[in-house]
Design a protein around this nucleic acid. Structure first.
Lengths: 204, 204
DNA sequence: CTTTGCGCTAACAAAATTGTTAATCAAAAT
DNA sequence: ATTTTGATTAACAATTTTGTTAGCGCAAAG
């Protein structure tokens, strides 16, 4: 719309292309086409392919940061409610960004040099969440309501159950015939199922 | 060694390179270097980069097929033992091939054209396993020993819990500090943990 | 009305990457 | 000993892909 939507259009196009094909598979010419400009514009605005990629990644990290932070900034609930909230928010986020995990695992976790940078940024936000969880678990265990478990392990289980089906969604849809056909009903089912699974881990 | 270990060396090198960098990121010259030959040899033995890639993939599919089949070809156990066996075999396999899931999800599930071929091949072996599981679950539920659950969902949960930590192992090692430092102890812990998690899902 | 500057393109350059071929070398076959 | 065969290389060709630059046109500023 305004004067400088070209830059935005390039970034959007780049995001699509990078998410779909990864850094190595993405073509700057294709990005330019999608954005409706010559590929010389990419150089004009961002200098190199690498720089565009970094920009896209840093936007995505901001998104992830926000969803983690949102799970921490409500103080006043029981352990059940905190777990419920983590699962709900995380699954909703995944449902809105179903390709993000595949992108990160393919592009970041495999590249040691990129990994280092991302690792720290994520840890800053994830660690407080883990600490908070562990504190609550310890408390409930000392009272004798729930079994003691390691918060990191529990969180790893939650994330595994939430994320993995989205990572293999193309397969799930056919091999597990039509399981995810309806995005929304799948989302709700999983919210319930995964909460159930995790809570049962805590039962004595 | 023998006359024709060049072909094997090329395939091994290709496997390394493809697993690490994906199809788009892999370089035929690097594969040739690793194999200790000129890149003209790749053409001599396989014609194109694509063909080498297909060969590597078909080897990997054979491996996956075997681990699925091995979970079916023992008839005489209880549901607990079948689940235990599935988890054990699967986790052991993952521990020996920790990069396989990342490779498949990055390279296959994202490429619709490759996906179609793989989908069918996997389904042929996976479907019998699902059917067998469901039959057992139905039986135990009718007797009133366990709760009825959907076998596909249960299997999806098992696979999620098993696979995902390996997919993010570079992260798990630091963010979840040193959790996977010792491959073997992590493997044993997970075998126990995931069995526990899954069985609890079945409790009434 | 002219100038300035920014967004943009077209054409080009450089490098990287895959694929091809003619020639060589060594070993096996005759 | 000579021929043949298959494995291998070096050099080259074609293509793709990224990066660069000179200049055009338009809109705002003077």
């Amino acid at each position: 719309m305004d004067v400088n939507d070209t830059e935005k259009r390039i970034l959007q196009a780049a995001e699509q292309e990078f998410m779909q094909k990864g850094f190595a598979g993405a073509r700057t010419t294709v990005i330019a086409e999608k954005a409706g400009v010559t590929h010389a514009m990419l150089h004009y605005y961002f200098r190199t392919k690498e720089k565009i990629f970094e920009k896209v990644i840093s936007e995505k990290i901001t998104m992830i940061k926000e969803i983690i932070v949102s799970s921490i900034t409500e103080e006043k609930h029981s352990l059940e409610e905190v777990i419920q909230s983590i699962i709900d928010r995380h699954l909703t986020f995944l449902s809105e960004n179903p390709n993000l995990p595949r992108f990160f695992i393919g592009e970041i976790f495999s590249h040691p040099e990129r990994l280092e940078i991302v690792k720290e940024k994520i840890a800053v936000f994830a660690n407080p969440l883990i600490k908070r969880l562990q504190t609550m678990i310890n408390h409930y265990a000392s009272i004798g309501v729930y079994k003691w478990v390691d918060a990191k392990t529990l969180l790893l289980d939650i994330i595994s159950l939430n994320v993995f089906p989205y990572m293999i969604s193309p397969l799930v849809n056919s091999a597990f015939n039509g399981m995810m056909e309806d995005r929304n009903s799948f989302l709700e089912k999983r919210k319930f199922e995964n909460y159930e699974t995790i809570i049962r881990k805590l039962d004595k």
